[in-house]
Amino acid sequence: MKKQNQKAWFFVLPVLLLVAFNALIPMMTVVNYSVQETFGNNLFFWEGLGWFEKLLRSERFHAALGRQFMFTGMILAIEVPLGVIIALSMPRSGFWVPVCLVLMALPMLIPWNVVGAMWNIFTLPDIGLLGYLMNHVLGIDYNMTQDPFAAWATIIVMDVWHWTSLVVLLSYAGLVSIPEAYYQAARIDGASNWSVFRHIQLPKMKQVLTIAILLRFMDSFNIYTEPFVLTGGGPGNATTLLSIDLVKIALGQFDLGPAAAMSLIYFVITLFVSWLFYTLMTKDDE
């Protein structure tokens, strides 16, 4: 038998340790919690798959999951086309390019909790700029702490404001990488603007768009800070998204078992949908 050099393990060790500390150990702790009932003083009782069963049958979980999918679906449906349209209308060269890029990047540079707080104040009916404008100038009854529709509209507009830039910047990067020669060929063929978009720009942007959609899916599906600061999940449970509900269970009620089970299900859904998106979007690239 050929003698193998075992030294190689030594070189892999640092990475292994790093992954263990930031992924494997926390993850296994969650798995550990999810199959036990926890009391104070480190008392644990075996629960098996009980928490999972209860959770998957719980109406509260179904409702939060439904709200989460609705939120993410709306976010993607608005931000992706809007981002592409803005990227298409941005200048490709000249003085305005850096101006546009900086303006676009600004919202993304603001910390998430600040975004929530900003919009909270912005929408206050009496002193907030938007709230005052809506209620006292335009005469529209707008109070997101009382009206679920207003609350939803506000968190969606806030997310669109905060994150459309990401889609814009990625699409723009894809667009500027298309050689001028393609546009010339299209002009010689006499192709319409729509054909240029459909047959040159879109195929050339596909890879960066895949990344943009994946990132926006994962981020919006796991969103917590901004809606928590803005609405706290209210009014009632109207904007209680999955992560907000999860924190309520884990830290509000200190039910570590159900919270751990919920985290795992949450994680698996995110992973599965991401995989689905990626597979569908890269299907015919071979």
């Binding site: 050689p179 060929a185 010689i188 006499g190 047959h199 195929p203």
Partner: peptide, 21 residues
């Protein structure tokens, strides 16, 4: 006249073809 109306063809140094056709 526009390039289309002049009825011409152009071949570039880069290989320009519609990528998904």
């Amino acid at each position: 006249l526009s390039p289309q109306k002049r009825n011409i063809a152009l071949v570039h140094q880069f290989f320009v073809n519609y990528p998904h056709w």
